[in-house]
Nucleic acid binder design. Structure first.
Lengths: 219, 219
DNA sequence: AACCTCATGAACATACTTATCATCGAAGAC
DNA sequence: GTCTTCGATGATAAGTATGTTCATGAGGTT
């Protein structure tokens, strides 16, 4: 279990780190919004603890950035900032805890969130195509299909959000980790190759004026 | 949405009841553990607000009793009773809130729990037409109907404000994101196409001199 | 060096969307 | 009733988004 701790106050950050490590979790630390984005992208996390008051990139922007990945988030906010917490929950955070907190409460909330968060599946299967996330391999009718890094990331994004229309911006920024200006055909090309390699011409739908949607019948 | 309020202090119980009723929820009240068990069984509930300090049957026993039904539970406990809250969360409660609480916080927590428990269907259905917001798809009698971006946005606006007359200005500025000067027939044409594609000629009413209103019987 | 893989974006082709016009019809005012 | 204003409609041209091909170059491997 990997937990990303985003908190600029090193005292609190350290306290959290020791508590979680002691409880058997592995932790990463980011001390400002920029670091947080980088670290978040560099590694898969099971949970994010997020302080809303951060240098450089605001906690809310970060929350938006994290949301599409479906990684659960617990907001850590100062006591009394009721509006912050409400806004955070409305933006899709899974829970919040107020500073100062008791370590036992922190652990209880983390366990509660982990318990109710469905572990994101490791293997996806549809129409003879099997996508294995941890090994990053794809097979079609038993034959191995080789996808490039970008193709694979794009595909996972679509799979993780199956049946949801994703904007070009969301897709591009998730895969390329840079701002989308919308002047190239790069994304189209990658989509085209994925469709072709997997025979997914009609599974990955074009949502005109928006982006793409992976259409898979609900289990 | 039916919410069961289990709380022995009638002042607090009443406050919660008024708050929730005002927000459009329906409430049931139990003032001790026995009543709570009876009421809980007599009716299906979407959410339970549970005070842990109760006469007759303890809150914890009640929590155990409720747990198998999977009905979400928010614990309402006195400030400072950290151990109670932790024990409650460990026993499977979905959240807690401390007395005294702000009504806004109560509502936000209820919404958050409802959202993550039964993810609010972003689906609208009427007269064989199904509008799915996240996938941005529309079907009529099972057949997929393809709407353009503007048509879809316009339709959502009407659905989100069903039974409310919306001015041309409101509609135009929401969908087109620019100021409305009122000299074109553009809006009319889009309305026309929506009506046609969905067979909603008499569902989307023209409000003469104002704009349009989507008329749907309240659930 | 020669070769490969991959990402990229220019150029063009295609498909789709939208605004506008002209005209017709309907509602309300008198 | 007549007049006036507002809304409905169908056609179409202009605009915009996407698909596809292809040449290039970066970066790595042999």
């Amino acid at each position: 279990m990997n937990i990303l701790i985003i908190e600029d106050d090193r005292t609190i950050s350290g306290l959290m780190g020791r508590t979680l490590t002691g409880a058997g979790y592995e932790c990463g630390f980011a001390y400002d919004g920029e670091e947080a984005e980088e670290l978040f992208d560099s590694h898969p996390w099971d949970l994010v603890l997020l302080d809303l008051m951060l240098p450089k990139v605001s906690g809310y922007d970060l929350l938006e950035y994290i949301a599409p990945s479906k990684t659960p988030v617990i907001i850590v906010s100062a006591m009394g900032q009721v509006n912050d917490r409400i806004r955070g929950l409305k933006m899709g955070a899974d829970d919040y805890i107020c500073k100062p907190f008791q370590v036992a409460e922190l652990l209880a909330r983390i366990e509660a969130v982990i318990r109710r968060t469905a572990p994101s599946e490791d293997v996806f299967e549809y129409r003879g195509v099997v996508v294995n996330n941890s090994s990053r391999t794809v097979t079609k009718d038993g034959e191995e299909v080789s996808l490039t890094v970008k193709e694979f990331d794009l595909l996972s994004m679509l799979i993780n959000n199956r049946n949801v229309a994703l904007s070009r911006r969301q897709l591009y920024e998730y895969v390329w980790k840079e701002e989308y200006y919308g002047e190239t055909r790069t994304l189209d090309n990658h989509i085209k190759r994925i469709r072709q390699k997997l025979g997914y011409e009609d599974v990955i739908k074009t949502v005109f004026g928006i982006g793409y949607r992976m259409e898979v019948p609900e289990a």
